[in-house]
Design a protein around this nucleic acid. Structure first.
Lengths: 341, 341
DNA sequence: TTGAAAGCGCTAACAG
DNA sequence: CTGTTAGCGCTTTCAA
């Protein structure tokens, strides 16, 4: 068996209690005692049983992370930020993927509650009634990261989906594009809804109506981007630009365009969203909208920890600013000058 | 406060113990009792306190995952497999990144031990003396995933690094290449060592000696692949193929070659390793060595759980078979016929 | 500054 | 089939 407080107590002659306090840097323990106890504990290779401690103290120093798909490069980077920040704040993270299924999200929440997490960071589905009810009843803090749930925006860390998508589309409209193919994201997530709204907003700002046949749905993976563009071309749809819900789709789109001998950006311009690490290594380098993924994760933990430590701390929507990253998949001969690599 | 066994006991009139057993599907509880108790528990929204339970039973049903970098697409896929399998086996996972630092690995192990994990899945550094000692003293099961630690190969799930790299290099040597640039991976991980050995093995099989100036070191990221190839070209090194430790490097290499107006595969052939999801979307599609990343993670959990459930279950090295995935970044005009998309 | 006692919520061991 | 008692390892409360 592992070393316990009792073993150290026996060895040093102090009570279990004193040992516990000395090891926790509790005040009102003499310097000498503290030093002895710590030395002996070290010698004996003591590793505190966090589980036992948290049982008594009612704080597990554990955060539950409910992600849609941790292998998706977007979430992978968000989770990296979460892990890093949590580790530094002395929290551990329990990770669960939901594959965007509302039912899995519920299961995950219950599982994590059973494991006594101190708080939750969640990439939620948008509008599931049952989940909404579950959230409202939650007695521990929770933060939605990069998304929101209809009716509880104030629990979210967001990055300007509407504005970001509007900026991108506006950019293309200003450069004369009128046949823009838009590949949307998965249903039930706020990002898809908001980015579609950004699209609409940009069109309206130019007094243009959207042709619905230019809006395609997808589940947001590379394969979809590839397939949707192929299908559009096969259908004989003519377009001069493809705007994608995310970079993964855009990468698939690039592939399809290349295979169909369409040159990017000369024949067709391509816009992504998210600015994944791989995007600037595409051929051509992908123009996109920056989303501070790692920072998003860090911020989520930061906020969550504040709520954990101060239950009175009020919830507010945290908004981050989107920013265009103009690269080679769009044309550069224009007035804009926020080009970046 | 949340609903506890006691609350259900009070409400149903049974003892806490009976409630506990009914809820755990323990035999020797009458069907009627079980049904009543479950119904009431449900009604009351009972969520078992797993922490309290594991404290008593000495099993936390938690697995610690020590990864180098969960945002790296390779690990992201491995972790996905781990998470999926663990969830299905009724285990939760605690995730920690080490950034390939031996000291962080130690900290992670101790942290997870303190959290009473039932076992560990680790992507370890290769040969740190202190860590090796720590592993030897571990009293819980542990599995190294995709790597091994010098002296304890039998704890590993591997995927044939030596053979895989030998296959790749052999493929090129057989097609007449004699000036092959090799971009190696990070030091201290078994994969780098093994793949270098595979390289050597292939050369020797062809009675050729390796020119050390054609072997470059790197930390295995896209940026390195890009930079190393740039540097090689600037140094005036002449080569007809680039073999990379992994796909990320190869993706960076492709970028550099393109920018230097070298055509792939006509001027230079490029070989990756890992077969990341994104690799087949590269321009040109990347030839690589298949590594079953998700499966690797699943298998690691499978093995670990067997060890947890049966401490006598012996450790053996699990080997998976590597396989070439020939795509467009290498030439196809040859006798091989295991081409795949 | 230290110690003794109680108890977190659950499961195990023993009893009936 | 069900109940009683003890105790997991720690922190908290109360007392000295």
């Amino acid at each position: 068996m592992n070393v316990k407080l009792k073993d150290i107590a026996d060895r040093t002659g102090f009570s279990i209690n004193t040992v516990s306090r000395a090891l926790r840097e509790d005040s009102r323990i003499s310097e000498a005692t503290r030093v002895t106890i710590r030395r002996i504990a070290n010698e004996m290779g003591y590793i505190p049983n966090v589980v036992a401690g948290s049982m008594r103290s009612n704080r597990s120093r554990t955060i539950g992370i409910i992600s849609a798909d941790s292998a998706n490069p977007f979430f992978a980077e968000v989770i990296q930020g979460i892990e890093e920040k949590a580790r530094k704040a002395n929290y551990s993270i329990l990770l669960i993927n939901t594959e965007e299924q509302a039912a899995n999200e519920r299961d995950a929440i219950r599982l994590l509650l059973g494991r006594q997490v101190d708080g939750l960071v969640i990439a939620p589905v948008y509008n599931d009634e049952e989940n909404l009810a579950l959230y409202r009843e939650l007695t521990i803090p929770y933060i939605f990261v990069g998304r929101y749930v209809d009716g509880m925006q104030d629990h979210s860390i967001l990055h300007g989906d509407v504005e970001g998508q509007a900026l991108a589309v506006d950019h293309l409209l200003r450069h004369g594009h009128r046949k823009i193919l838009y590949i949307a994201g998965p249903k039930n997530i706020s990002n898809t809804i908001d980015r579609l709204q950004g699209l609409t907003q940009a069109y309206h700002a130019h007094n243009l109506e959207i042709d619905e046949s230019y809006i395609l749905s997808s589940s947001g993976h590379m394969e979809d981007g590839y397939a949707r563009v192929n299908q559009a071309l096969n259908r004989g749809l003519s377009f001069t630009a493809v705007v994608c819900f995310n970079d993964l789709l855009a990468i698939g789109a690039l592939k399809s365009l290349h295979e169909n001998s369409l040159s990017v950006p000369d024949d067709v311009e391509v816009f992504g969203f998210d600015n994944l690490a791989m995007s600037q290594f595409m051929q051509p380098r992908l123009t996109t909208v920056e989303v501070p993924k790692n920072r998003l994760g860090q911020k989520a933990v930061e906020e969550l920890v504040r709520h954990i430590e101060d239950p009175a701390y009020p919830y507010t929507t945290v908004n981050m600013k989107p920013r265009l990253i103009l690269r080679e998949s769009t044309l550069a001969n224009h007035m804009d000058n926020n080009a970046t690599h």
